[in-house]
Design a protein around this nucleic acid. Structure first.
Lengths: 329, 329
DNA sequence: TTGTACGCGTTATCAT
DNA sequence: ATGATAACGCGTACAA
C-alpha cells in the first residue's frame, strides 16, 4: 500500500494525497474522499521514503556499554521519554563493553540517523577520529570529551564530598577501592577527589590503602580482603561505584565485620539495590535519567539548528548529585 | 557523499561501485580504484536508500513496557546480542506502561521495520486488531496471545512449585499477594498455580489470605499489613513477583517480624536485588535474557522465510525456571 | 566485464 | 485547488 494506490482509490493524484497528509492544502471534497480511503486501508506513509526525500531520518542512535546495567537503562529511559515527545525514534547500539562494537556502531549509525548519543566509558584516540569524521551532531554522556558537548556528573567533587563526609564522621584511615585510569571519570576523577580530600585534611596518604581493580563485585571482594588483612586496616572504605561497595560489603559481612561499627562503607552512584543492603549503603545519588533526557534535548536542539557536527560545541553540562545518608557509615 | 560521487572519483559507473559493494562482480583493476576511493572518503551506503530499493529495512522494532525495569533490560540485552550477529538493528519503543503508547508504536513500527518483538503486559481486543492488521511478523514475549508465536515462562507451574515448596517446608497458612487479572500471566496463571497447589494438598483456601493490588512495592507493603493483622495471620507469604516480595519483606522487617522464623516469604522472577535482601529472598529464577535471544531468533527465521505475518504460527516456546533456595523460607 | 535505465515511495516545485 | 514531474540514493535487469 502506497500513496499512489491511495490516490487511485480516492480518484485524485498522489500530489493531492501528499498535501492532505502534510500541509493540508486540499478542497473539502477531495479531503473527504481521501480521508475515507485512508481510514479504510489504514495507510501510513513509509518513513524510509520520507527520510530519503527529506534527507532526515527522525532517528537518533544511542550507544551504550551495557543495556542491562541499571545506569544505562536509566539513561535510555530518560532519552526515550524525551525523544518520543518530539517525534524521534531511537536506534539502540549495545556494545557489551566492546570497543570494537562501539566503533562499529559509530560507523553504522553515521549515515543512518540524525544524531548520536554516546554513553562512554573509555575514550581512545580512535574514538576522536570517528567523532571528527561524523557529519551529524553527537552528545557524549558520562565522560569528558574535548571539543564535543558532554553531559557528565561532577565525579571529582562527588568523591571528595564522600571522603569529607567520612572524615567528619571521625575516620582517618580510609581505604580506597577503585578502577583503572582508562575510565577517566571513574578511574581518575574519583580517585583525585579521594586524594585531595585527604590532603585538605592533612591526612597522610598511604599507598597500601589504595586498591585498584576492575568493575566487578569480585574485584571489590578481593581488594577488601587485602585491605582488611593489612597490619593497620582502614576504619572506612570508599568504593568508586555502588557495585564495588556491594562487593566490599559482601566480604565484610561474610567475615563477620560489623558495618559500620568495625568498618564503614561508602559507595557512589546510588543504584537501586544499595537501599536494600544490610545495612543500607550510604552513597551519592546520580541523576542518570535526567542526564539522558538532557542529552536528548541538547541533541535535538542542535539538529534543529541545522548543525552538521557538534565539534567545538563546548557546552558541557555538569550534573549535580546528592549524598544519601543511610546506615553503612 | 553517495555512490555516484564515488563512481566519478573512481572513474567508473555507479553500477560497478554497487557491484563492488554487493556481489563483487568487478575486474581487479576497477576493484582497486574503487577500494582506494572508498577508503579515502569513508563512504558507507545509506541504509534508507537500500531499504527503499530492497523493500527490507533490516530493522526490528522492540516494544517494552518499561525499559528501566530489570526484566525488560535483560530481555532487550538478549535481543540486541542475538540481532547484532545477523545484521539487524533495533528500534526501541518504550511505552512507560501506557496502552496508548503501545498502540502508537505498533502503528508506527508497522511499516518501518521488518518485524516486531512485543513484550506484553495486558493484552486487549484492540491489541488483537492491530496484530491482525500487521503485514510483518510479530513475536510476543511474556503473555500468551492466541494465533501468534509467544515466548513465555510457565507461570502456572512456577507458582505451583513455589507453593509446593512452602508446603513441604511445613506451611499450611499461606498468604498470597497478587495483581489484577488484566495481566494474564501474572494475575491469572500465577494465582491459579497457588490455588491448585493448595487444593492438591487439601488445604482449605481462605479468601482473606488472597490479597490483590498493583505491581508496586507500596501495594505489597499494605497488603502484607492486612495479612498480618488478620486474627490468624499466615505463616508464609507468596508474592507473585520479586518486587512485591520485597515490599512484603519491608513491612515485615519494619514491624519486627523475623523472616523466616515468624513468617516465610517467597517471590517469583529472581531479580538481582533479591539475592541481597536480608535475608536473601527465596524465589524462582526466570531466564529473561535467553527469552529475548530466542524471540529474536524466531523472528529473524520467520522474516527469512518470507512470512508477511506471524498469524497462525502457533509456535509457543515455554521456558523453564529454577527454584532459588535462599534464606527467606 | 561494464554501463544505461528504471523503480522503490515520498515530497516539493511548477505550471495549469 | 490540482496534477505532472523531478529528485532523494541505491540495486539490478538488460543490453552492450
Amino acid at each position: 500500500m502506497n500513496i499512489i494506490k491511495i490516490a487511485d482509490l480516492a480518484g485524485v493524484s498522489k500530489s493531492t494525497v501528499s498535501r492532505y497528509l502534510n500541509n493540508g492544502y486540499v478542497s473539502e471534497e477531495a479531503r473527504e474522499k481521501i480521508k475515507k480511503v485512508i481510514e479504510e486501508t489504514g495507510f501510513v506513509p513509509k518513513r524510509q521514503a520520507q527520510a530519503m526525500r527529506l534527507q532526515k531520518t527522525n532517528l537518533i542512535g544511542v550507544i551504550v556499554p551495557k543495556i542491562s546495567t541499571e545506569t544505562a537503562a536509566r539513561v535510555i529511559e530518560g532519552i526515550t521519554n524525551e525523544l518520543s515527545e518530539v517525534g524521534y525514534e531511537v536506534l539502540i547500539g549495545n556494545t557489551n563493553l566492546s570497543i570494537e562494537k562501539e566503533m562499529d556502531y559509530l560507523k553504522v549509525f553515521k549515515n543512518q540517523v540524525d544524531g548520536i548519543i554516546f554513553m562512554a566509558t573509555e575514550v581512545t584516540p580512535k574514538h576522536y577520529e570517528l567523532f571528527d569524521q561524523l557529519s551529524i551532531p553527537i552528545v557524549v554522556i558520562a565522560q569528558k570529551v574535548k571539543h564535543y558537548p558532554c553531559i557528565i556528573h561532577d565525579d571529582y567533587h562527588a568523591a571528595k564530598d564522600a571522603i569529607h563526609y567520612l572524615i567528619n564522621k571521625g575516620h582517618q584511615s580510609i581505604g580506597f577501592i577503585g578502577v583503572g585510569e582508562y575510565d577517566e571519570a571513574v578511574g581518575i576523577d574519583r580517585k583525585k577527589g579521594y586524594l585531595d580530600a585527604l590532603k585538605e585534611h592533612q591526612i597522610q596518604i598511604k599507598e597500601e590503602y589504595i586498591q585498584i581493580g576492575d568493575f566487578s563485585h569480585e574485584s571489590a571482594f578481593c581488594l577488601t580482603e587485602k585491605l582488611m588483612n593489612l597490619p593497620h586496616p582502614p576504619t572506612a572504605i570508599f568504593a568508586v561505584t555502588d557495585n564495588l561497595a556491594i562487593g566490599c560489603m559482601e566480604y565484610l559481612n561474610e567475615n563477620n565485620y560489623q558495618i559500620p561499627k568495625d568498618v564503614a562503607v561508602m559507595g557512589l552512584g546510588d543504584i537501586k539495590i544499595s537501599a536494600y543492603m544490610s545495612p543500607p549503603l550510604t552513597t551519592i545519588h546520580y541523576h542518570f535519567q535526567t542526564m539522558g533526557a538532557k542529552s536528548a534535548k541538547l541533541l535535538t536542539e542542535m539538529i534543529k539548528a541545522g548543525k552538521l557536527s557538534s565539534k567545538n560545541c563546548e557546552s558541557n553540562f555538569i550534573f549535580n548529585y546528592r549524598l544519601m545518608e543511610r546506615r553503612s557509615v
